[in-house]
Design a protein around this nucleic acid. Structure first.
Length: 393
DNA sequence: TGAAAGTCAATATC
DNA sequence: GATATTGACTTTCA
């Protein structure tokens, strides 16, 4: 990536941008917040990322999507030219941007690039030019290959070569992509409901039962946890008002720093953060939708588990500080919602369904859920020292 | 050292 | 053909 930055199309591109204007927001960025420019300031993109004010990732991606759609520019071209990412990554990034405070420096980079791109008055023009050039080159290749009797595409990236980097002379048979069937996915989801962090033994068992490699099962759990988390971020942003985290109701300044981002849902801590959340007017129940595709169905099939996904995500990743993601990022709250509205509720006084209309009730309910969560966390921890397959609450 | 974050790239879907 | 999804892999971080 360093190499990419050094000969970075973005850098050269932004060198023609307007110099940064005064930021009236005093640091917290709105979609149009100008950034210092690498070309002018002599800053590398990494330095810019480090110095960047908090950006509204949701608003940025929204705007980028808009501009790309309006100008009929593809994700692939944009990704490769502006971000240095592949189409799939761009799609993912645009569809599910993580909030700024949840991003590492590396993760912030594409958003800084997007912001710079949006700032560039000639950004669209330039990309259009690229598109034309590409088309021209493609037509040229096509013509010459037609006259040679070869296909233009897939000369090196045909299905028989790894990552398109192997020439036919160095043939490596490609590993076929594993495609999990619906039954396998369902089984994995159910397993996840029971144990989001399965023991090696459980993984082995799952793998043999489903006739999969253990690495596939491990990867699936990694990916699933990570993607669920992201879904939750999106839900949070949308629930906070349909605009990005920088908008009202989701003030980024109230969020925790990266260091406090352990997905803790420790009861003690959750109580405090929930108060903050309530102050922001962010509803809890709305977030349940985040699980609808992944977990709720699986949960019901699993007969209800005390280990709801986010809950365990949250409880097993260490403790967060006062600004930890449980309160600010929402994981803790989601998990509390889960805890309070699923099977866990049956063993407590927490209502099993329906939002608490009264804010005081809601608060009480959340506190109870936080305590419950804490208990579960401790039990889980204790259980993990024994044979996890023998867990029973 | 294990989990999370970030990304690629094959494949599915629109 | 463009975009979305997802299994696999690498890097980062606590």
């Amino acid at each position: 990536n360093i190499l990419f930055f050094q000969s970075d199309p973005l850098t050269s591109q932004t060198s023609s941008l307007k110099p940064p204007s005064d930021d009236p927001s005093g640091g917290e960025s709105q979609p149009g917040t100008p950034l210092p420019l690498p070309g002018h300031s002599g800053l590398s993109i990494q330095e810019m990322v480090a110095m960047s004010p908090e950006l509204d990732t949701y608003a940025i991606t929204k705007k980028v999507k808009e501009v790309l759609t309006d100008n009929n520019l593809g994700q692939r071209l944009f990704g490769e030219t502006i971000l240095g990412l592949t189409q799939g990554s761009v799609s993912d990034l645009l569809a599910r941007p993580k909030p700024w405070h949840k991003l590492s420096l590396k993760g912030r980079e594409p958003f800084v690039r997007m912001q710079l791109w949006l700032q560039d008055p000639h950004s669209v023009e330039k990309l259009m030019d690229m598109k034309r050039l590409e088309k021209k080159a493609y037509m040229k290749r096509r013509l010459s290959s037609l006259s040679d009797g070869h296909s233009v595409d897939g000369a090196l990236v045909g299905p028989d070569y790894i990552q398109g980097s192997q020439s036919p002379g160095q043939q490596h048979l490609k590993k076929p992509r594993v495609v999990l069937g619906p039954e396998e996915k369902e089984a994995l989801k159910r397993a996840y409901q029971q144990k989001p962090y399965p023991s090696p033994k459980t993984i082995e068992e799952l793998a043999s039962q489903l006739n999969l490699k253990t690495s596939t099962v491990i990867n699936w759990f990694h990916n699933y946890r990570s993607r669920i988390r992201r879904e939750l971020f999106i839900e949070e942003i949308q629930a906070a008002g349909g605009v990005g985290p920088g908008s009202e109701g989701g003030s980024p300044s109230l969020r925790g720093s990266k260091s406090g981002e352990g997905d803790s849902c420790d009861g003690t801590e959750s109580e405090g953060t929930m108060e903050t959340r309530q102050g922001l007017g962010i509803g809890l129940e709305d977030h349940r939708g985040a699980f609808k595709d992944h977990d709720m169905e699986a949960e019901s099939e699993a007969g209800g588990s005390n280990n709801s996904p986010a809950q365990t995500d949250c409880t097993t990743s260490g403790l967060g500080g006062p600004g930890s993601s449980c309160g600010q990022g929402g994981l803790g709250l989601f998990s509390l919602t889960e805890a309070s509205s699923s099977s866990s509720a049956s063993s407590t006084n927490i209502p099993a369904s329906g939002p608490a209309r009264n804010p005081r009730d809601n608060n009480l309910r959340k506190k109870k859920a936080a305590n419950l969560n804490n208990i579960i966390h401790r039990l889980e921890k204790a259980a993990s020292k024994e044979d996890p397959s023998e867990w029973e609450f």
